[in-house]
Design a protein around this nucleic acid. Structure first.
Lengths: 228, 228
DNA sequence: AGACTACCGAAACGTTTGTCCCATTAATGG
DNA sequence: CCATTAATGGGACAAACGTTTCGGTAGTCT
């Protein structure tokens, strides 16, 4: 939200500023791995980065600002969706990357920290939301391709399929706080795929004819013959 | 973990102690509604409850302890699973109760606070885990009944179905931080149900014969002929 | 009713956290 | 290479936080 990465107008993005930012973000990540978000202190980060405490407060405001900036940094490094040629392979790749983001030591600590920070700070929440909406949008393309290949019903909402795969993993991470395993990821894919094939991810109401809307109260069913 | 509700051995659960606890927990909830977990301070809670700051520190230790105790209190008030006669109605009731727990002002603030607290404190995490595992276990019965009625494939994992319904809602709440609506809840039920009917929630490997294990890599399929 | 004692509460205390001031450093532009 | 000035860094400062002490209040038991 501020000017951590690149400032407006007539400032100097030159060497020192960038160097300080890199050192601070790296120190932040180290601290997150060792102590988690609640154990993150501005003082400690400044000391570890070898910069003045004042500087860290001035540029990031507080620990939520630090993790938010870190998240924005990760957002710039996000990779494109997989394209294995089949929808199951793509979705498994997606689930695997979610699993990494959760369980991998350094990366996992960062993501969990941002989730924690987002519960307390709107800036961190915005960074989190932006990151995931962008990520969902990217991976939704894989689903769209599968629809075009005829692997999934026409009209399937790609973004929702991607969410459906991530959701159970985050549920275990944040709500029930159980360990999240590779098997969980595979099951998640299998289930989302089963629902998608059954047409449960086809948008309910395109509403072109506003006449006697079909209140689907029993279950949502696929209509593959509808021309998208 | 301490002795908030009822102490061990030769203590006095008498009037005053219970009165103090009630006042403190209510003040805690009020503060959570107004300021959220990160704005919760022991000082403020004590003042609002009209009790001494020392007392709150002594009995609850810190703000995570407060929300953990609050969660334990809610756990005691949890209601049994719905039984509408059909699995879809039951699952919709479940989704609705999750939705309430998330969006309802007072209740929602409490649950979100516990989720936030759990990211920082093991005591709060334990309270959260216990609450949800118990809740899942309770609602899984509704799925089991549906299996017995023949509405779902034999061997369907009830707990996993219940998780699958809650997961997308919490995902929106905690990760993408989008508003969670009634439509989200209904969609969640429809999708979980579609996957369940397709047999995607049938346990993959009962593994009685450890010979040449069937690596199900294509998709998980139902085996309704297995004798439970 | 009276003694016992578990529990509570007000205030003082040391520690941690965040802010401010001002001298110093080092990019930038000529 | 030098002047300019954005940005940094150390240290002093105020506020918030959590802990400790000790006197007071009110259940509990006989």
């Amino acid at each position: 939200m501020d000017q951590p990465s690149r400032s407006a107008g007539t400032v100097r993005p030159g060497g020192r500023t960038a160097r300080v930012r890199a050192a601070v973000l790296e120190a932040t990540q180290d601290e997150l791995v060792e102590r988690g978000f609640h154990g993150l202190t501005m003082d400690q980060v400044a000391a570890r980065a070898g910069v003045g405490k004042t500087t860290v407060y001035r540029r990031w405001g507080g620990t939520p600002g630090l993790v938010a900036d870190l998240m924005n940094e990760l957002a710039n490094q996000s990779s494109p969706h997989a394209d294995t040629g089949g929808i199951e392979g793509d979705l498994l790749a997606n689930a695997q990357s979610v699993l990494d983001a959760i369980t991998d030591g350094r990366l996992g600590a960062t993501f969990q920290a941002v989730i924690a920070a987002a519960t307390a700070d709107e800036q961190a929440a915005a960074a989190l939301r932006t990151f995931y909406l962008r990520r969902i949008e990217e991976w939704a393309k894989a689903v769209d391709l599968a629809v075009e290949r005829g692997e999934l019903p026409r009209g399937t909402d790609g973004g929702e399929v991607i969410r459906a795969i991530s959701a159970p993993l985050y549920y275990r991470l944040v709500v029930t706080r159980e360990p999240v395993t590779r098997e969980d990821a595979e099951r998640s894919v299998a289930r989302a795929l089963a629902a998608a094939r059954a047409g449960a991810f086809v948008a309910a109401e395109p509403a072109p004819a506003p006449r006697a809307r079909p209140r689907a109260h029993k279950a949502v069913r696929a209509h593959p013959e509808r021309q998208g």
